[in-house]
Design a protein around this nucleic acid. Structure first.
Lengths: 134, 134
DNA sequence: ATCAATTGCGTTATGCTATAACGTGTGGCA
DNA sequence: TGCCACACGTTATAGCATAACGCAATTGAT
């Protein structure tokens, strides 16, 4: 699949997320981009929607914020399978995790209910290794 | 563990959720309870916080809303393990699912990162059996 | 070449979700 | 009695997200 050509706004938002060391809310992104001409939330949300669609970023439902995808190949749409996130409540770091066995398990669970899965959210809130070492 | 004595507001909110046939937002609950004297969001949110604490309801992160716990014994605090939710995007129905194998898998994943889990969110968006049968 | 459809953009206004901060009342208990 | 913890009510505000309008650039079919 061909590399996705991003618009200026989309690139700015994606760069902002890449340079952040944790998830950012849409309004935080907006504030960081005011110097680049951003004035309104919609400018951010529209870019975020596209980046989500391209699979370049993830939305963390449990904290209404967004992170750049940890995958190496930023230049292609790709379907990760299910992604699980470990979110540290102390330092805000987010770790992206993939696991075949868990996908399989979820698939079985959904199958039992004859449920057709469109999107799966898995978010683990807790404390990362660094922040646990008191 | 002893039955939890709920306050008037807490009971009203819990009843509202029990009688609903899908998840409700805090503001929807507020509207349904205006006739019972509710005037402000905080009255709802404070009750919801307690009900969450007691394990009588769940919060669905991916849609900012709340459902009554499907467990039969409403009268005791209980720790479910991890709960996964299947949420139908057509009819709004929510199915609560529990699975040992998945918990185990998540535990292993977290362990690999030396991550200390506090709370796990699993939400599957899609289409339920009824709504798939076109 | 031209028209229509699509897409991105900017702006204003609005709606939905959640909490801060303050004060009141009540029940338990030393 | 005086203190404490807790639920409650109210006002105000903060934080998250989208509707609706109009304009500009691009594409693609005729």
């Amino acid at each position: 699949m061909a590399a996705q050509q991003l618009t200026k706004n989309q690139s700015l938002v994606l760069d902002t997320l890449h340079h952040a060391d944790g998830p950012l809310s849409a309004y935080t992104i907006l504030d960081k981009l005011r110097d680049h001409g951003f004035r309104a939330p919609l400018q951010v949300y529209r870019a975020l929607d596209k980046l989500l669609e391209f699979g370049l970023i993830h939305r963390l439902e449990s904290m209404n914020s967004f992170v750049a995808c940890a995958h190496p190949d930023h230049h292609h749409h790709h379907d990760h399978g299910v992604t699980a996130f470990a979110i540290c409540e102390d330092c805000g770091q987010v770790t992206e995790m993939h696991d075949e066995a868990m996908e399989e398990r979820l698939s079985v669970l959904a199958g039992k209910q004859h449920f057709k899965t469109e999107k799966t959210t898995i978010e683990i809130r807790g404390h990362c290794q660094n922040c646990t070492a008191e």
